[in-house]
């Protein structure tokens, strides 16, 4: 066991982990952060997406020990003060159905909008091409994001 410390949603956290523990499991089972979901454990689906130093990554492919001294942001951190404009748009456009992929997709798009507040449809698609959604057919997700870029209409 090794104690690691890192910033989780802007709060310092310490946790004891073994080298073979995966970040996703440590977040969910040792730190009570449940919004990142497990969908495939191979990096294929994106349900476990978290932001690592601001970048969307797969928490199922990262060892917990790797994030020592880094910053991790999850949907809990984004939602804490108030919903982001992106989250509001997701509500308005029904950009989710079962809701399982939503945390990952919202984080991936949060990174995109941070870097590029006015992405094209193509850039939006590229940013979430690794986040699978079986329910919505993606179109309502595009609509929500486009509504924020000033390019979209409902």
């Amino acid at each position: 066991m090794k104690e690691i410390s890192f910033m989780l949603n802007d709060e310092p956290r310490n946790v004891q982990v073994e080298p073979n523990e995966i970040l996703l499991d440590v977040l969910r089972n040792k730190l009570g952060i449940k919004s990142p979901k497990c969908g495939c454990e191979r990096g294929d689906c994106g349900a476990c997406t978290v932001l690592l130093d601001g970048k969307a990554v797969r928490s199922c492919l990262i060892l917990a020990v790797e994030v020592e001294n880094h910053n991790i942001t999850t949907l809990e951190g984004i939602s804490r003060a108030k919903l982001s404009a992106l989250q509001e748009a997701f509500m308005e456009f029904n950009s989710f159905q079962c809701g399982y992929c939503a945390p990952g997709i919202i984080l991936a798009v949060t990174e995109l909008l941070e870097k590029n507040p006015h992405p094209s449809l193509e850039e939006i698609k590229e940013s979430i091409a690794g986040n699978l959604c079986r329910c919505t057919g993606y179109t309502p997700i595009f609509d929500a994001i486009m509504s924020l870029t000033g390019k979209g209409t409902k």
Binding site: G32, S79, F96, I106
Partner: peptide, 21 residues
């Protein structure tokens, strides 16, 4: 009408079986 499960699902609050301790 806005989905009544929207807030749960886009805030990360929605509980699925594996989220229960």
């Amino acid at each position: 009408v806005t989905r009544i499960d929207a807030l749960d699902k886009i805030s990360g609050a929605a509980t699925f079986v594996d989220d229960i301790d």
